[in-house]
Amino acid sequence: MFSFNKLTVFATALAASSVVLATPASVKKRAALDVFVPPITSPVAGDVWVVGQQKNVTWDTSNAPAHITNPIGQILLAKGGPITGDVLADGFDILIGSIEVTVPDVVDGDDYAIILLGDASNYSPEFTITHSA
């Protein structure tokens, strides 16, 4: 018959072995999904967008992994780093590579950037938004 100490040691060893055995499966499951951070190809530095126009935001999907952690995209407008709160597009498949947005009514002549969200965020170079061409 086991004493209390021997039983405790046996139960602890059994519990530890089940954790070790479960670890590889959870690692394999996580490894099957990859974070995808596609580089933004448009807008580029120096572009000038006019309020109210339709513009294409584009990104490179050529190196997309087979399994993406979050394939749903969102386009945001940023000014000086922080997000301005303008959601220009959302709910699209990150693998489409481009989406048309309407240039929002913002402060004339300021520099902005596009943020592409999905798995992670990626910023475009800064560009200008103005009220007239």
Rank of each mutant, 00 (worst) to 15 (best):
N70Q: 12
S98G: 07
T61F: 02
G46H: 10
V19C: 15
T41K: 08
F92Q: 13
V35T: 10
I115M: 14
A13I: 12
F127I: 00
F10S: 13
P38Y: 00
Y123P: 10
L117A: 05
P24V: 03
L21E: 05
F127G: 02
L116I: 01
F127N: 06
K28S: 14
D60H: 01
A32N: 11
T23E: 06
K29M: 04
G73K: 01
L21V: 06
G97I: 07
A15L: 11
L95A: 09
V107S: 14
G52D: 07
F36Q: 06
N5T: 14
N122K: 12
Y123V: 03
A22R: 02
V51D: 06
W49D: 01
L21N: 03
N70S: 12
K28E: 15
V50W: 00
T58D: 13
G85Q: 02
Q54W: 12
G80M: 01
G91E: 10
N56R: 14
V35E: 08
P125G: 07
L116M: 05
I96K: 10
L116N: 04
A22Y: 05
A120V: 12
F36E: 13
W49F: 00
G52N: 05
S18Y: 14
K79D: 04
I72W: 15
A113P: 03
T102R: 01
I115E: 10
P125D: 15
S124A: 01
L33A: 08
H67Q: 15
A31Q: 11
T8E: 13
V19T: 15
V50A: 03
K55W: 01
G80F: 03
I72N: 14
G81C: 06
D110A: 15
S98R: 11
A22N: 04
D60K: 01
V9M: 12
S121P: 06
I72E: 11
S17K: 08
D111G: 09
A64C: 07
D93F: 05
V20K: 09
P24A: 04
A32V: 10
L14R: 00
Q74C: 09
F10P: 07
A78Y: 04
P43S: 04
T102A: 06
N56A: 15
A16K: 11
V19F: 15
A66L: 13
K28I: 12
A32F: 09
V107N: 08
A78Q: 05
T84C: 00
K28H: 13
S26Y: 14
E100D: 15
D111A: 08
F92R: 13
F36V: 09
V35K: 14
E126L: 09
S62A: 11
D111C: 03
V9P: 02
